Computed example of a mutant assay.
Amino acid sequence: MVTAILQIFIVYLSGSVALLADTIHNFGDASTAIPLAIAFSLARRKPSKRFSYGYGRVEDLAGVIIILLILFSAAVAGYESLTRFLDPRPVGHLQAVALAAIIGCIGNEVVAEFRMKVGKEIGSAALIADGYHARIDGFTSLAVLIGAIGVWSGYPILDPLIGMLITIAILKIVLDSSKLVFTRLLDGVEPEVLDKVKDIAESVEGICEVTDIRVRWIGHRLHAEINASVDPSLSVEEGHEIANAVREKLLENFSYLSGTTIHVDPVTASGECCHCVPENLEKRKGKQKRILSVYPS
């Protein structure tokens, strides 16, 4: 916001449409902090009877709002650039435009580093997307600097052209951020996370097999549901201790893991296919026969 306010005065003085596009973009960036702040505030609330999983999903909705804000800034910047391209106007105070571009680049990079660092630490897709957005903004500010040099060299057409390039860069951010945010809204998760959860669970002593795993993000917190099989001769208490060992090992390896549901099955009836679905009865009997050769009753 500080960067955008500094730039807006120079836009007024110079009439640079490239700098105007960059300034609009920076105002858009500053406004994306508002839905994120609201989302993080709501996420701190304790789960209720109506929202038993808590309010972490609000963060994903904030990601959608951020994408819409970025898209709006692209539309405004594109309109202004096209208008100036069709109706060229002189650009003045080129030194001030260049200085504003440098300020914009530095300001955006500082914000980008901070947002991405914190986003990766807490596993927040929305915050990471916002950080990449700020980094691209820094590059667009450098594009404004190139435009100012072009105008100074006698090519004023470069100013609206740079504005159009900035618009294209903003649209690319919209596309990349949308993939990440909407994947999480649809309970998508990175495949490597799923593989890591399975490897950790299977490495716990007493676990014979991990048959089913479901992992999803709720905001920047990870939730896992695991079906694991154990020796059928174990007591309920021993099976419970093994499940706790799995949970503790997962928490050691995932700082952003907030919830785990571990269903312990006897190895003779493991997996979702063995939980009283009539059409799977024959499958279940066949599996029991195979397992009983290893764990005779």
Rank of each mutant, 00 (worst) to 15 (best):
V2M: 03
V2G: 04
Q7Y: 04
Y12C: 09
L13W: 06
L13R: 12
S14I: 12
S16E: 02
V17Q: 10
D22H: 06
I24F: 11
H25Y: 03
H25C: 11
H25P: 02
G28C: 01
D29F: 04
S31D: 05
T32C: 03
P35H: 10
A37L: 15
A39M: 07
F40I: 08
L42I: 13
P47V: 03
S48W: 01
K49F: 09
R50P: 07
Y53S: 10
R57K: 15
V58I: 12
L61R: 01
V64R: 07
V64Q: 03
F72S: 06
A74L: 04
Y79N: 07
S81N: 02
S81F: 00
R84Y: 00
P88M: 08
R89V: 11
P90W: 12
V91Q: 05
G92D: 10
A96G: 01
V97D: 08
A98I: 06
A98D: 09
A100H: 05
A101H: 02
E109M: 05
V111L: 05
E113C: 13
E113S: 07
E113M: 12
R115V: 10
G119A: 15
E121D: 13
E121H: 09
G123T: 00
D130L: 03
A134W: 02
R135A: 00
D137F: 02
D137R: 00
A143C: 04
G147P: 05
A148Q: 01
A148D: 10
Y155H: 11
I157R: 09
L158K: 04
L158C: 09
L158D: 07
I162Q: 01
A169M: 07
K172H: 08
K172G: 06
L175E: 13
S177N: 06
S177T: 14
L180C: 09
V181I: 15
R184M: 10
L185W: 11
D187V: 04
G188A: 08
E192Y: 11
E192D: 13
L194R: 13
L194V: 15
D195M: 10
V197K: 01
E202T: 14
S203A: 01
G206S: 05
G206Y: 08
I207Q: 13
I213A: 00
N227E: 13
N227H: 14
S229V: 06
V230K: 10
P232M: 11
S235Y: 11
V236A: 12
G239W: 09
A245Q: 14
A245L: 10
V246F: 09
L251C: 09
L251R: 14
E252M: 05
N253I: 00
N253W: 02
N253C: 06
S255V: 14
L257F: 04
T261D: 05
P266Q: 04
G271L: 01
C273S: 15
C273K: 15
C273R: 14
P278Y: 09
K285V: 04
K287W: 10
K287F: 14
Q288N: 06
Q288A: 13
K289N: 12
R290C: 03
I291C: 07
S293E: 15
P296Y: 01
